[in-house]
Structure formats: structure tokens, C-alpha cells
Write a protein that binds this DNA or RNA. Sequence first.
DNA 1: TAGACGTAGA
DNA 2: TCTACGTCTA
Lengths: 166, 166
Amino acid sequence: LKWMDPGKVVGSVCGVQIGDKFKYRALLKMIGLHSQPQAGIDFAKIEGKNLAISIVDSQRYLNVSGSSDTLIYSGQGGHGLFGSKSPPKDQQLVSGNMAMKNSMDKKSPVRVIRKVASFGMDVFVYDGLYIVDRYTDNKNAEGNIEFKFHLKRIPGQPALHSMLKW
Amino acid sequence: LKWMDPGKVVGSVCGVQIGDKFKYRALLKMIGLHSQPQAGIDFAKIEGKNLAISIVDSQRYLNVSGSSDTLIYSGQGGHGLFGSKSPPKDQQLVSGNMAMKNSMDKKSPVRVIRKVASFGMDVFVYDGLYIVDRYTDNKNAEGNIEFKFHLKRIPGQPALHSMLKW
DNA sequence: TAGACGTAGA
DNA sequence: TCTACGTCTA
């Protein structure tokens, strides 16, 4: 009746390689890649501080991928999603956003999972470890504060595109 | 990349016995018991008509279980759920509700899955095949039309309580 | 208890 | 595009 729980791990997950694909968010949890059923930022309390350990880029926020080793990830909260009905608000430096800042301060690695379309189907692909380099908290088009976390891929990992076998 | 899809079946599902328990709705789909991720009524087009093939009683509507072989199931739509924020409306005889009526007319069996609490956890239990006996479309407390489908358990099936082994 | 980058089908 | 008896974590 109870699911095996792989728990929360910082850094690489044993047995999971770059390019591994998963159909459902629920699978990410079972494998131990990302525990949150919907939230994009997963974090864990490490030595008394919440550190971000994985993020899922489902392209529902206005994230920007620069080169293949750069990712700009929008903070959560404030209803900044596409098609959200709730009135927009300022994002707050709490919860997942605070965890992202803490990971930045500690230079702690963050797993990145990207939702990509493949043959008309969506899949979640593991893209390896990133470091949060810096963040901004500018106002967006509606005038509300929105965090943007700038992540850099840790060098030495195989390129994602070279690991994609469909 | 693709899930095995057991497809939609009317009546019993091969390999599934009364009393079988499932933790998640997603499992009901994988097994072929109920394809809808949230909707309570699943249906399929049979000989040109949509017939209800399975329902999930999650107790979010005001359903009434009479004796162990009777079930009164509320129609869908009209936001008749507990804690719904949307303004209530009249339910319409469309979609799942229409499928329930069609199953009634054809005396086509409907699988019933019940969400029950067990040791503080929720589980979905397969309860066997029912026939839609009749339905009403009275106004509820708020003055909106609400369907009530009266289902009778097909005789000869083992009692659910006798199959429950926790 | 409420928030969160869900998901399939109509 | 939107609805639908979802589901987990904090």
C-alpha cells in the first residue's frame, strides 16, 4: 500500500543518466529525481537550510534557454503562468525561490529536468547538474516582481543532445 | 515512450477481481479499470452511442450508499462538489451524464470503484458490476438541477466486504 | 489546509 | 481549449 520512497538526494541520482526520459511527473518522484507532483522547484533541508535540489522546466513560465549550457528559470508564485486566471501578484523570496537563492549562495548543484516534445508527445528529460549563478527580481510586463534564476550547466557532463536516443 | 494502453472495455476487466485495491487514479487507467484522470464517469462509444463503463465514487459529491448492493451516484457538472468556488449551475444531460442514461437504457454493466479510507490512507477498491436502474433530476438545496443515478449491483458477485484483505 | 510548471479526454 | 469526484508536499 505504500510507495517505496527513494528520498531526497543532492546531486546525481544513482542509476539515472543524462538523456533518460520519463513520461510522467509521478515517475520523477518514484526515481528520486524530483519529489514535487506539480511544483517546479524541489528542495530539502540541508544543515538547517532549504536548498533547491531539482527543477522541472515545463515551459509554462516564460523561461529562456540561452546556449545549451545556460538556463533562466522563473521563480514560483505570483501566478505567473500562461493562462492563469488568478490576479497576478509580486513573487516572494520564500519556499522554492528562497531555496534557489540558498543553493546559489552554497554553490550547491541543482538537477535540471526539461519537458520536451518528441513525436507529438511530451516527455521529461534529465539534463544534468547546474549551478545557480545569479538571480534578478525585476518587474514583469504587468508590473509585478518576478524572480529570474540564471543557471549554468556544470562543465564536464555529456551534452544532452548527444545522449538523446529516441 | 508510450504507455501500454489497455483500452476501454465494457464489463469485467481481465485479471481484476472484486476487492482489488489501487492507491492512485493513474493506476486505474493503467489497469484499464477507469481511464479518466479526474472525472468520475468514464464512457466509450459503443455502436454509435456513448455508454458509461465505469464510475469512481470518491465521496466528493453527496452520494448515498444504501444497502451494500445499491449506490446512488450524483451526475457531473454544475459544480456540485464540496468546497467548489464556482457558482452552482443546473447539471446537463450531456457527456458522462448522458452516457449513464444510455447505459441505463441498454442495461449495460458499469464498473464501480469506491474510494475508501483504510488506516488513514485512501485507496480505490474495485466493487464489481452494477446496472443503472433509474435516475432522477430534482433540484438540490441551492435550487439547481442535479442528477441522481440509482445503481443496483448485479447479483451473483462475491460481496465486497468478503474480498477485502488488508 | 492551500498551493503547485499535472493530465487525459471531450 | 477547458473540464474533470486528482494528488502530493510544505
